[in-house]
Amino acid sequence: MSAILFRDVRLAARAGGSAMLALAFFAAVATLVPLGVGADLRLLAKIAPGVLWVAAVLAALLALDRLFQADFEDGSLDVVALAPPSLEATAFAKIAAHWLTTGLPLTLLSPLLAVMFGLETSGALFVSLLIGTPAVSAIGAIGAGLTLSIRRGGLILPLIVLPLLAPAVIFGAGAAQEVAGALPLLAAFSLVACVLSPFATAAAVRLNLGS
């Protein structure tokens, strides 16, 4: 399990991996927003939590279709599925690796973007992303498992996953604005997603492997 985790993290961190791409995408989307709505810092500070949350979700989705795809194509997923650790455990490791290479870097970058958006305190945004992005990885993994055998699965994946992620964005952006009660709800959603998702993901992967 840890072998899969470290392998996936290493693959994503190397040149051409998904970690840097997701970060760059996050920053690029965040840069386009002021160009679209104007440079008024008061307005930007007001919309920053929501915009950064949406950008973070989109950036995390970017790397999702590769979660199982590469292993599926070269056949190593078949071997992994046959190996002793259950597919559920493998799915959990994959989710953890995805979070470590997208959710966590995005969270670490967020204070910088918060400053650029004129937010005075970025602590709440940081904490909300830290707690909420695992839910994005977990629910996204279900979508990745479902679309595994589709050649252009990356196109359908967002349509499937984004509606399911509505609660994460709502509670996440709420927690980033320090609305009372948002943070516990976000944490609850994130925990439930991380616990239940490996089972759904593994079931989907198993079906697509044809066993």
């Binding site: 479902l146 679309t147 055998s149 589709i150 252009r152 699965g153 359908i156 349509l159 499937i160 984004l162 509606p163 399911l164």
Partner: peptide, 14 residues
């Protein structure tokens, strides 16, 4: 509605 559309799209893609 999006959930329904995603379901239909997924079915058509496999």
């Amino acid at each position: 509605e999006f959930l329904y559309l995603g379901y239909i799209a997924l079915w058509n893609a496999i």
